[in-house]
Design a protein around this nucleic acid. Structure first.
Length: 852
DNA sequence: CTTTCCAAGACGAAA
DNA sequence: TCTTGGAAAG
């Protein structure tokens, strides 16, 4: 493969010009010396990574196929692929070995399966199937555990086994590690049971010719370390989100990187490590520096994503962690609108606020923002209920990511089970599922009898079934032969088709006919229409995989013939992809995103709203790592580009009973120190503020007339009091036309204001002219830093060490409205900008903010 | 032996 | 809201 790389490098390296100093340094860093890029949120790490790859190829003449880039999600991989394509072209990009840890391992394991003692047609066993296996293995221990008064859930056992695997401990290691020290400790019994189950679980997987997610990595390590020639192609390894790697993944990196002799580049940010619960080891950063002598660290500290005030608040949250290594982030943007923090009496009130506020923002931004610009980030998906219905009530389209994932839906798994069985007859979980779809009246007992026979005859369960229906073997106790005729017929028909090379979409179509799946859904599922649509969606997915540039490119040196059939590729893609990966782009632009904070990592939105920022939820009450919860909130906050909203409720229904809730200590600790970090007051978005939003997003500001039109429309159509009876919400106050008409001060009657700490006195009466309120609560923080930026450098520091923002913050006249006595001087505001008259206390329209 | 139906209980984050 | 488990019906 002669790389035709020697071209006008001056032209192809033009992309270097768009990098900042630190990024450039990272890109140009000597390829042979190990590199850690420590990149804060929004600091252009993907840009640095892709540029480095491009530079390795264009300048250092590395063949694209000698570069291995690993990410955690398919989404991250495809984004990287897309951006690299811009730099070096689609052709060469396709040759770069890019993918998730799991997919990359699977790729090689298919080729070298025999080396590690598995068959090339192994099936990836997902968590749900693993859980079922474990649940079965746990049954014999039920009585014993019950006698000791211990309840052991299958999920718990699975996660403990998974943790062991993530650390590279096999069943023997696990048992040895939990050798009894105290015979009377119930923990000993538990660990002993888990140890046995672990052993049996492994055996079950091997018998099923199957690897679970952890196995993909473990067998990958095994392959690469025992068969180093499998990595001969490798000249450089790059790892994204390194702070979330576990021990096994780190070993994998080391194994793959062996032939490169230290040509390793990783990108990470300890502040964004949020996967400790699935065994991520931040310590891998230090470990790498030890294992790869001479590792250089480069820090990307300039944030291009968020406004100054969002960054400032986010940093204030994360830096409460005293064990954290202090770091700063610089913003290239103006301070912008102060993040909003609000309190509500109920989930419904909170959800309503979010819905109406989204509508209001769309109106006040004159159409500059669309539904797709909003994200609601949740601590866990169950919180979406109230929010979804509130959005629905306001006719706001939304897409809930996470929650029940596409490939975990039963209708999808039904179909996949048949296909898995066709590809891998030994895969028991698929058999168990498919055998009763549609119902063939095969129960637990019958299956048990079949399994028993299979074990005795050393055949797979499926073979036993086939032999019974062929009358080559006697029937089992609960007669099964007649019941399974149609099942065997179906599997055989598909097997034949697949052998002839039928495409996955065709196979699915045929399967649906053979088992009459549509009718089956109609009969058994109340929501059969949606489910049937999902099946169609699966066919679409299958055809996409089929055409999809087969990224699994040829293996030039290692002549192992690829055993990948189209069916196998499709099945693997199904098991290793997640929901977000295949949802269409246009679709998501028109919908508000609702997702978990975890799933939001690596993404950004113009407006981010985070509800339920409460004790018990955030930090989650059962968390094992308190600081990780804090970092999670930091990650969530730093997804926001222009506007950030945090909210919490004082009462939440948990399992039937209503419990009182306090504001999250992560936030109350911040507001206690600096009450201006957040405001309870939603912004009116005068021209200058809108301009900042436009600037940060790199969009054209909306025409004033359009804004006016939409705002008027919004006021006409939205009933503010949908909120909450007595609480004349501040939103109402600010949005009412009365405000701009200069209504009497008494208009602002009483408002509950969620500033300060969570347990603050809930109500204060404010009697202040709304105009002053609006101006005071907003402009200083918005405007002061802008003038500051102009005066000083083009970049303002937002770290806690930064004194430049302090004066504004400590200005007594700038305290939140609720705590201010009646008489207030507006001098501070006027001095800075000169207020236009009659424009709500904001500068007149002609004023152009000094943008950077 | 299997299926169906109904009440009670739960509810963390993911490849 | 969805899952789970037990009891009765098929």
């Amino acid at each position: 493969m002669a790389p035709q790389i020697t071209q006008k490098s001056s032209e192809s390296l033009a992309f270097l010009k768009s990098l900042n100093t630190a990024q450039l340094q990272a890109v140009l860093h000597e390829p042979t010396s190990p590199l850690q890029i420590l990149a804060g949120p929004g600091s252009g790490k993907t840009k640095a990574l892709t540029s480095r790859i491009a530079h390795l190829i264009l300048h250092h003449s590395l063949p694209p196929s000698s570069i291995c880039a690993v990410t955690f999600t398919n989404k991250a991989a495809s984004e990287m692929r897309q951006r690299l394509g811009v730099l070096i072209g689609k052709q060469r990009t396709a040759e770069v070995r890019m993918g998730t840890f799991h997919a990359s391992c699977a790729l090689f394991l298919r080729k070298f399966s025999k080396v590690v003692g598995i068959e090339p047609n192994f099936t990836v066993c997902d968590a749900e199937e693993s859980k079922k296996i474990i649940s079965n293995l746990l049954k014999p221990h039920k009585n014993f555990l019950a006698s000791k008064d211990i309840t052991l859930k299958d999920g718990n056992v699975l996660s403990q086994i998974s943790r062991a695997k993530a650390k590279g401990l096999d069943a023997k290691d696990f048992i040895a590690q939990h050798k009894a020290t105290n015979e009377f400790d119930p923990q000993v019994d538990i660990q002993r049971v888990i140890g046995t189950v672990y052993e049996k679980y492994e055996k079950a997987l091997r018998r099923s010719n199957s690897l679970d997610f952890d196995d993909l990595l473990l067998f990958g390590v095994k392959l690469f370390s025992e068969h180093p020639s499998a990595t001969n192609w490798c000249r450089h390894v790059l790892v994204d989100e390194f702070q979330d790697t576990n021990v096994t993944q780190y070993e994998l990196l080391r194994a793959i990187a062996r032939p490169t002799k230290g040509c390793v580049t990783i990108v990470g940010d300890p502040d964004q490590s949020i996967y400790g619960w699935r065994s991520a080891e931040v310590g891998n950063l230090a470990k790498m520096r030890k294992d790869f002598p001479g590792t250089t660290q480069i820090f990307l500290e300039e944030n291009y994503r968020s406004t100054g005030s969002i960054l400032k608040a986010s940093l204030a949250i994360v830096s409460q962690d005293k064990t954290r290594i202090p770091k700063t982030l610089l913003t290239s943007h103006p301070s912008g609108t102060v993040p909003v923090l609000r309190s509500f009496p109920s989930e419904q009130a909170e959800a309503n606020f979010i819905a109406v506020e989204i509508k209001r923002l769309v109106a006040f931004m004159g159409g500059m923002l669309r539904w797709g610009d909003f994200a609601i980030l949740l601590r866990f998906s169950a919180l979406s209920r109230a929010i979804e219905s509130a959005l629905q009530k306001e006719a706001i389209p939304c897409a809930v990511l996470g929650g029940h994932k596409f490939f975990e839906r039963q209708e999808i798994k039904d179909i996949l089970a048949y296909l898995q069985l066709v590809d891998n007859p030994s895969f028991v979980p698929a058999l168990t599922r498919a055998i009763n779809v549609p119902s063939r009246s095969i129960g637990e007992k019958s299956l048990e009898a079949i399994t028993e026979r299979a074990l005795k005859t050393k055949l797979s369960s499926l073979e036993v079934i086939e032999r019974i229906t062929d009358a080559k073997q006697p029937d089992v106790k609960p007669a099964v032969k007649s019941k399974l005729a149609s099942f065997v017929k179906t599997v055989r028909a598909l097997r034949q088709l697949a052998a002839k090379g039928a495409s996955p979409p065709d196979l699915i179509q045929r399967l649906l006919e053979l088992i009459g799946y549509e009718d089956h859904l109609k009969k058994t599922q109340p929501e059969w229409e949606t489910r049937w649509e999902n099946v169609q969606e699966l066919i679409t997915f299958a055809s996409e995989v089929e055409q999809g540039v087969n990224l699994a490119n040829v293996e030039p040196e290692d002549s192992a013939p690829s055993s990948d059939t189209p069916l196998r590729l499709f099945l693997q893609a199904s098991m290793l992809s997640s929901e977000g990966d295949n949802q269409s782009e246009e679709d998501s632009k028109e919908k508000v995103t609702i997702t978990t904070c975890h799933a939001a990592k690596g993404l950004e939105w113009p407006v981010v709203l985070i509800p339920a920022v409460e004790q018990g939820t955030f930090p989650f009450y059962r968390t094992e790592d308190f600081q990780e919860e804090r970092r999670l909130l930091y990650v969530a906050c730093t997804r926001a580009q222009s506007l950030l909203y945090l909210s919490h409720v004082t009462k939440r229904k948990v399992g039937g009973e209503t419990k009182t809730r306090d504001l999250s200590e992560f936030v109350s600790a911040v507001t206690k120190e600096d009450s201006n970090m957040f405001t309870a007051r939603v912004s009116q978005f005068a021209a200058i503020e809108r301009a900042v939003v436009a600037q940060v997003l790199g969009r054209a500001d909306a025409p004033e007339a359009e804004v006016a039109r939409r705002v008027a429309e919004f006021r006409k159509t939205t009933r503010y009091l949908a909120f909450d009876g007595d609480e004349t919400s501040q939103l109402d106050t600010l949005s009412f036309p009365a405000l701009s008409n200069g209504m009497a001060p008494s208009f602002v009657a009483s408002s509950k204001i969620a500033s300060g700490s969570g347990g603050a006195p809930p109500q204060k009466t404010v009697s202040l002219h709304p105009m002053l309120l609006a101006a005071k609560a907003q402009s200083p923080q918005i405007l002061a830093p802008i003038t500051q930026n102009v005066a000083s450098t083009s970049t303002s520091t937002v770290g806690s060490s930064n004194p430049s923002l302090k004066p504004a913050a400590s200005d007594p006249s700038l305290k939140p409205a609720a705590t201010i006595p009646t008489a207030v001087s507006t001098g501070g505001v006027k001095r800075r900008l000169g207020m236009g008259k009659g424009t709500m206390g904001f500068p007149n329209k002609k004023f152009k903010p000094p943008l950077l």
